[in-house]
Design a protein around this nucleic acid. Structure first.
Lengths: 241, 241
DNA sequence: CGTCAGATTGATATTCATCAAGATCGGTGG
DNA sequence: CCACCGATCTTGATGAATATCAATCTGACG
C-alpha cells in the first residue's frame, strides 16, 4: 500500500478519481516523519512550507487562552490533510499537535500548487476537504453549545467512528481511541472529571464500553439516536464536484 | 459603488487584485434579493445552484437539534460569501438565515466555476475566504468551550467590530448590531437570560454600552484584553497567495 | 389606550467545575 | 519477585456558572 493511499480513499469517497489523477497524487514528492504523543507538528504563528497528511494516529488543532487553558477544536484521523490551510493562510492561527503517537507525511507547498494547476478537479477536491473540516467545526459548535455533556461525548464518538470507517479502521463495532480523559476534556470543552462522569453515564446506559484504548459500540444506531448524530455533514457520498 | 464591491474589498484586504481580476469580478452575472429578519436564505438539505453574497445586514449559519433548539455557528457580515460552500458540498448540511433584514446577491455556480478556471488566483482567494470561515469557527469553539459567558460575548463583539471595520461599517467606536438577545443566545450557546446578565456585566465594567441596535465600545483595547481577542485568525494582512 | 416583542429581574434547579482523596495499573529498579 | 512510582482513572464533597421558570417592565406602534 502506497503511503498516499489514505488520501486517495478519502477523496474517492467524495468523487470519482480517474487513473491520471491517481497517478498525479502518487507522484507527489514527500518525506515522512513520526511524532510522539503531545509533540507539536505545526506551530501557531509559523509559516509552513509543507502540507502535512496524517498516516496513522490522531492529531488535533489546538488553541490556547492566555491563561494556558486549551481547547482542541478538531481531531484528525488518518487520511486527513492536516494543514492544507497553511497553503493559503500563510501564517498559522493555531497549532497542530499529535494527540497520540503518529506517522505523518509532508508534501511541499510548491508540489501542491503544481498539482492544483495541472489538475483543477483535484484542486476542487482538496478545497472540499477543507470545507468538510469546517462542517465538522460547525457540528462541534453545536455540540459544545447546545448538547449535554454525555450527548456531546457520544456525538464525538459517532463522528470518529464514521470517519475511521471510511479509512477502514473500524473492526466489529470497535474503534481504537488511545486518548486520555484529559485530552477528551479539551476536545469537548469540559472538565476532566465531568468527562469521566459522562463516560460512566454512557457506560451505564449500555451505549458503549471503553476498555484500554478500545471503544466498543454495541449498537451504533442507538448511540447516534442518543446524540442526534446525522453524518450528512461528513459528505460521504460521491458526487461530481 | 458597484454591488460586487464589498467582495472586492474583502479580497483586496488579503492580497493584491490586478485590474483584470477586478474586471472579471465586476462582470459576474447576478441577481439581487432582499430578505426579512428570520427568513431562510439557503435551506438545509437543498442543492444550491447559486452562491449568495451578503450586501447589507447580517446572516448566520444555523443548525438545529431534533428537539428544535438552535445553534448559530457563525455570523456573516456584508462582503461575506454566504454559501460558496454549496459549490462543492452539493447538498447543504446546514441552513443560512437572515438574522436581520438584509440584501443579498446571487451568482450562478457556473459563473463561479468559469471564474475559477480562467483566474486561478481568484479561485485561491475564494478558497481562502472559506478557510477564514473555518478559522472563525475554531474561535467560536474556543469561546464556547473555554471562555466565560461575558468573555464569549465580548469576544464576539470584538470579532464583529473587526470584520465590520474591514468593510467600512464602523463609525467612531460604534457598530450597528440589530440582534435581539435571544438571537445572541443562539450564537453564543447560552440561554437568553444569561446573555442579558452577561451584557449587564460588560456594561457595569464600562466595556461597552448597547442602546437600541447600536453598540458603543469606548476602549477597544480593553475589550480585546478582557476577552483574549487576537485578530490574527481573520487574516487581515495582504500576502501573495 | 391596548398590544406585543423584547429586555430585565428574582427565585430556584441543574449542570458543570474545582478541590481533594483514593484506586488502579503498567512500568521500573532493586 | 516485589516495592515503588507516575500517570490515569474514579469518586465524593462543595461551590460557581448557567439554565429554567415566572413575573414585571419598557418602548414602539397601531
Amino acid at each position: 500500500m502506497a503511503r498516499i493511499d489514505p488520501l486517495i480513499s478519502a477523496l474517492a469517497q467524495r468523487d470519482k478519481l480517474d487513473t491520471e489523477e491517481r497517478t498525479l497524487l502518487g507522484a507527489l514528492p514527500f518525506y515522512q516523519r513520526k511524532y510522539g504523543r503531545g509533540e507539536e507538528i505545526v506551530s501557531v504563528f509559523s509559516r509552513p512550507t509543507h502540507s502535512c497528511l496524517v498516516l496513522s494516529g490522531i492529531t488535533g488543532r489546538e488553541l490556547f487562552l492566555k491563561d494556558g487553558r486549551r481547547q482542541v477544536a478538531l481531531l484528525q484521523v488518518p487520511g486527513d490533510f492536516v494543514d492544507l490551510h497553511g497553503l493559503l493562510l500563510k501564517q498559522m492561527d493555531h497549532s497542530v499537535v499529535a494527540m497520540t503517537d503518529c506517522e505523518t507525511m509532508f508534501i511541499p507547498h510548491t508540489a501542491v500548487y503544481n498539482l492544483i494547476a495541472s489538475a483543477p478537479h483535484l484542486g476542487r477536491l482538496l478545497w472540499l476537504l477543507t470545507l468538510i473540516d469546517a462542517a465538522i467545526l460547525r457540528e462541534r459548535v453545536l455540540s459544545i453549545g447546545r448538547r449535554s455533556a454525555p450527548q456531546n461525548l457520544a456525538h464525538l464518538i459517532c463522528e470518529l467512528y464514521s470517519r475511521l470507517e471510511t479509512v477502514g479502521l473500524v473492526g466489529e463495532g470497535r474503534i481504537e481511541l488511545p486518548l486520555t480523559q484529559a485530552q477528551l476534556a479539551d476536545v469537548l470543552g469540559l472538565s476532566m472529571v465531568h468527562v469521566n462522569r459522562s463516560l460512566k453515564n454512557l457506560r451505564n446506559e449500555g451505549l458503549l464500553s471503553w476498555q484500554q484504548s478500545s471503544v466498543e459500540i454495541p449498537d451504533f444506531q442507538r448511540l447516534a439516536e442518543f446524540s442526534d448524530f446525522d453524518p450528512i455533514y461528513l459528505q460521504l457520498t460521491p458526487e461530481p464536484r
